Simulated assay, not measured.
Amino acid sequence: MKITLSFLITGHTKFSPDCGFGLVKRLFMRTKVNKLADIAEVVEKSSVMNMAQLCGDERGTVTVPSFDWTAHLGSFFKKFTGIKQYHHFSFFADGTVVAKIFSDSPETSYKLLKVPLPIPNDLPERIHPPGLDNKRQWYLYNEIREFVDEADRDIVAPLPHQPQLPQPGPSTAEISADEDPQPPPPKVRKKGRGKRGGNQ
């Protein structure tokens, strides 16, 4: 059994769905967006060809789960070094991959399997979004909340549950305890030589 996979050359990857992104961008530039649901509405209204699918929401609800495929597959397969330079691949049942940079380039063969077949069908460990850290939450609350519509403020930039951490100041090693920090001296503007051709 063999599976063949080919990719377009960089710079020649334009295809029909690209116009859908252009329609979304055009409406997005003319629409006020506060939250993820607003973005989904823009996508839906931009064209009959566009459909929005949110992966989650601001409250941490996950609609489309993510799995740690990198760690999972790393137990069974070797890394394909320099894979981005290749455009044509042929995959064989024994774990061998034959790759070519271009269609008329010489073939390069790689053995990717680390362990004999079959590979377990178990799903990898699920990745849970960590959420925003304390600093980012307070940034949204202090700096962004005022620009959000009042009805959406507690969704986009709610009051954080944890107190705001103090901002780090200058270290005591840099500033002596018995002297105040001095501001940098003002810059002195140098005088020009004037216009040429004047009196000497």
Results as ranks from 00 to 15, higher is better:
58 E>N: 06
74 G>I: 00
44 E>L: 09
42 V>K: 01
87 H>C: 12
66 S>A: 15
33 V>P: 04
66 S>Q: 13
60 G>R: 05
82 G>I: 05
66 S>R: 15
49 M>G: 08
59 R>V: 09
94 D>K: 08
77 F>L: 15
97 V>K: 02
89 F>C: 08
79 K>H: 11
72 H>S: 01
65 P>T: 04
31 T>W: 06
72 H>V: 02
84 K>E: 14
83 I>E: 14
47 S>N: 10
64 V>E: 09
73 L>G: 04
37 A>S: 15
28 F>S: 12
51 M>L: 11
53 Q>L: 14
33 V>R: 04
68 D>W: 00
74 G>W: 03
53 Q>C: 10
56 G>A: 04
43 V>E: 02
88 H>T: 08
56 G>P: 03
33 V>M: 06
40 A>L: 03
57 D>V: 03
47 S>I: 00
68 D>E: 10
40 A>Q: 07
60 G>P: 02
45 K>G: 00
80 F>K: 07
51 M>S: 12
38 D>I: 01
71 A>K: 12
29 M>L: 12
53 Q>R: 13
24 V>I: 15
82 G>Y: 05
85 Q>E: 15
75 S>H: 11
68 D>V: 04
38 D>G: 04
57 D>C: 08
73 L>C: 11
47 S>R: 02
50 N>A: 05
46 S>M: 01
39 I>S: 08
42 V>T: 05
77 F>V: 09
56 G>W: 00
89 F>H: 07
59 R>Q: 14
31 T>H: 07
56 G>L: 02
63 T>L: 14
53 Q>A: 11
34 N>P: 05
58 E>Y: 06
51 M>W: 11
38 D>T: 01
92 F>S: 13
49 M>D: 14
85 Q>L: 08
24 V>W: 03
33 V>F: 04
88 H>G: 04
81 T>K: 15
37 A>R: 13
79 K>L: 08
41 E>M: 09
88 H>L: 08
70 T>I: 13
56 G>M: 03
45 K>Q: 13
58 E>K: 07
86 Y>S: 07
76 F>D: 03
95 G>D: 07
48 V>G: 13
91 F>Y: 15
86 Y>N: 08
62 V>I: 15
83 I>K: 14
97 V>D: 00
47 S>V: 00
